[in-house]
Write a protein that binds this DNA or RNA. Structure first.
Lengths: 279, 279
DNA sequence: CGGGTGGTTGACAACTCTCAAGCGGCGTGG
DNA sequence: CCACGCCGCTTGAGAGTTGTCAACCACCCG
């Protein structure tokens, strides 16, 4: 439908030459029986967060048929590049991804981080062409859902269509949250909000929301938050000095969730077990 | 060289099907008045930018049946409020709207401005409840599209479904552009980008992109751009001093589009001497 | 003519960026 | 097994931009 655009690589001044070698080594299709067995959405731990949420067994089977499980991706591998035509949506299963847009001057801007269960690829809905790159932050695995088939099935399954819109809407909601982080908030607030939000998302996928390992570098965080990486580093240090969190490299432990929430200006109905939060 | 990648180009690589004005022959009750006659998407000047883009006459008729034309809204009137259930999507016909989210502390954050032809209400897709208020910046009129009926019709009309996703995607694209404005750009760049983008959008709806009246206050712009209103004011003044634009209250004339473009896209290498405006 | 709203301008303080140096872990290679 | 070097991260000092506070101006309306 869309006229074929040349996926010319708008290569940014990004120089992971050492990784390129390892990436180019893996392009051969491998028939993985194991992967096929595990592919079913019915057995996926993310079922309740992912597209399948809210649809019944029969519908699930229909969806299963079009979901491909891609082989695990290496760190820094890309699901798609800028100006690639929109073919599939992806859903992270393991690991984490970032989506990055690149400005005319070649500067990267991280648009979002994607934890398991979160949809990737919506950026191309508008024009049928990706405006972002999706890059694996860790070794990861994803489900691939060809869009044509997805919309076709969705047209026949109202609940799936509804769910699709819902997942899209949630993605937009996250974008809006991102926006609210960036506007009119100072560095420390942004960092607190970031950690808070990340903790919430980890909790949603069944991991600890109080103790987790950041899949992204300080530089990525800084980019995402619109700060200098030094400011992020200082922010972490400050939060640690104040006893709010405990930092060991990328390991984060939230020692005082209540205080973190307060710093983030988040008020909520205490979804986390808040133990004796001082003052 | 990479000039095909304009940040926000609504003109999609889809073939725009020509619409025959044979719709008047369709069996329609014709119960009401002039407004009802004008309601038809087939006669709307925004046809190519709005939901109807890319669908044929017959499909258009189906869409027409579910589109309600709401009475003109007054300035500051709201289409919906926060936590209102999602009932309809809206499309601005005349005038302009802003969507505003409100933080726990009661601070407003303007999420987007909506010119004619642009969809309003997508914020509620995620949870079925609006997370924004849509407020008219001027007297305005909107088309209202009940979501239930829209999705029902879309399920039967693949092209409408596709178009719906496309419009949603374009909305997300605008959000992303907004985000890119806010991150890592200084005040003057944000302002230049803002004016540039606004001009582009005005041009798209058939108005002058070089001379237009801002529908929103300085305060709104500042809020949207994450700046203090004084900074916006100073930025306008500065742009005027530099001969890039001409400001008369809310009337904006872009005197030097090339320079504005440069300021909006290029962080440095601007031939403008950056010095204090004392003088 | 006066009040009100919205916009402009000025001065100062605070925050964050930039530049720069130093630290620490981890993998490679001897 | 240890040394080295690289990379990611931390820390420090100075400069610049922007927010804040405050006053003033311009326009609209009655």
């Amino acid at each position: 439908m869309t006229s074929q655009l040349q996926p010319e690589q708008l290569v940014a001044p990004y120089r992971p030459s050492r990784f390129m070698a390892s990436l180019s080594a893996m392009s051969e299709p491998i028939p993985l029986d194991l992967a096929h067995l595990r592919k079913s959405c019915a057995h996926c731990s993310l079922q309740q967060l992912c597209l399948p949420a809210g649809i019944d067994a029969e519908e699930l089977a229909r969806l299963d048929q079009i979901v491909k499980l891609r082989r695990p991706t290496q760190r820094n591998e890309r699901l798609f590049r800028i100006s690639d035509p929109l073919v599939s949506l992806y859903i992270a299963r393991d690991g984490a991804f970032k989506t990055v847009s690149i400005s005319e001057e070649g500067e990267e801007q991280i648009v979002g981080f994607h934890l398991p269960g979160e949809l990737i690829g919506l950026d191309a809905l508008g024009h049928g062409v990706h405006r972002c790159e999706a890059i694996a932050l860790t070794t990861a695995s994803v489900c691939e859902v060809p869009l044509v088939q997805l919309t076709a099935v969705a047209a026949q399954l109202p609940r799936l269509q509804q769910q699709l819109l819902r997942v899209i809407g949630q993605g937009m909601g996250r974008d809006q949250d991102h926006l609210n982080i960036l506007v009119k908030r100072q560095a420390n607030e942004r960092i607190a909000l970031f950690l808070h939000g990340l903790g919430e998302r980890y909790q949603l996928i069944g991991q600890s929301g109080l103790q987790f390992k950041l899949p992204m570098s300080r530089e990525d965080i800084a980019n995402y938050l619109g700060l200098a990486l030094e400011t992020v580093s200082r922010g972490f240090t400050r939060l640690q000095e104040d006893g709010v969190i405990s930092v060991h490299g990328r390991l984060i432990e939230i020692s005082d969730p209540g205080q973190l929430n307060r710093l983030a200006h988040v008020r909520e109905a205490a979804p986390l077990p808040l133990r004796g939060s001082a003052g």
